[in-house]
Amino acid sequence: MSEEKSYALEIEDLNVEYHVDREVVHALNGISFRLAKGETIGLVGETGAGKTTTGLSILRLIPSPPGVVKGTVKVRGEDISTLSEKQMEAIRGNVVSMIFQDPMTSLNPTKTVEYQIAEVIRLHEKCGKKEAAAKAGDMLEMVGIPRDRGREFPHQFSGGMKQRVVIAMALACSPEILIADEPTTALDVTIQAQVLDMIRELKRKYKMSMIMITHDLGIVAEICDTVAIVYAGRIVEYGTLEDIFNHTAHPYTAGLFGSLPNMEDRTQRLKPIPGLMPDPTNLPEGCAFSPRCPNASEKCRTQCPALTRVEGEHFVACHLFKEE
């Protein structure tokens, strides 16, 4: 199996539970996927589906207690659960980087922007202060901010600029895997377009692997190669862009598309998914989506469907589809 090596990230049956107040929050219930080098996967789902938890588990940042993590996460073929905290610190920000949704809270308001980027570089690379500062300047230019603005403090930057700084920080040590957690949700549309454009450019240039966490199928269509639709801590559908957008299989994915306004015909009524996300402390038996599913049968309410192949690399976890 020489092909094994080409994966930047492998996640196998990842389970995360939070034990709080005698209740168990089932945040992730067996997530598995592999990310090839240079590939971008989109994790799509609604609030509470477990997208961010997945990102944090890859960095081993789930607070424990109350979190309990089971399953394996392999970065460059190495199981991170076997690493010491020190080895893990060497991976964070260096091999795997994460960008968070809110750029305002990820920056230290009392330090200059340049200093903050240089700090990351000096943490992971052996280099002097001057050298690090120079590299920080390069990074700023790369994300489209003039070098001399590095002497300024975060509050002197606008929202879009701050997000660029955060991205520059995440990319400072040229990581192999970038986890972007809703990087443009807090931004305006025109600024979102600028940032997405930049991310796409950087990804191509540095051949990074990326996990794009988002709820916006429009962003997925622009940036991702493969898509995983996450519902109640499980991947319910997985496939290439083409598979997901043009050969939608899972009723939940179909529901997500139906909830979006049709740009061609504005009079067409929206078809929302009835009901709500299930409570992660009290997941329904069988398929978690069955209470909201228009095609649910008795089997769906008792048996949880496994991911099965529809065609090629297109997988779906639904009883309506049987393996060929």
């Binding site: 529901g255 009524r269 929302p272 998914i273």
Partner: peptide, 13 residues
């Protein structure tokens, strides 16, 4: 969330 968004928009309509 998207699926709830559609529910509320339909209600307003």
């Amino acid at each position: 969330d998207v699926s709830i968004q559609a529910q509320i928009l339909n209600l307003l309509e």
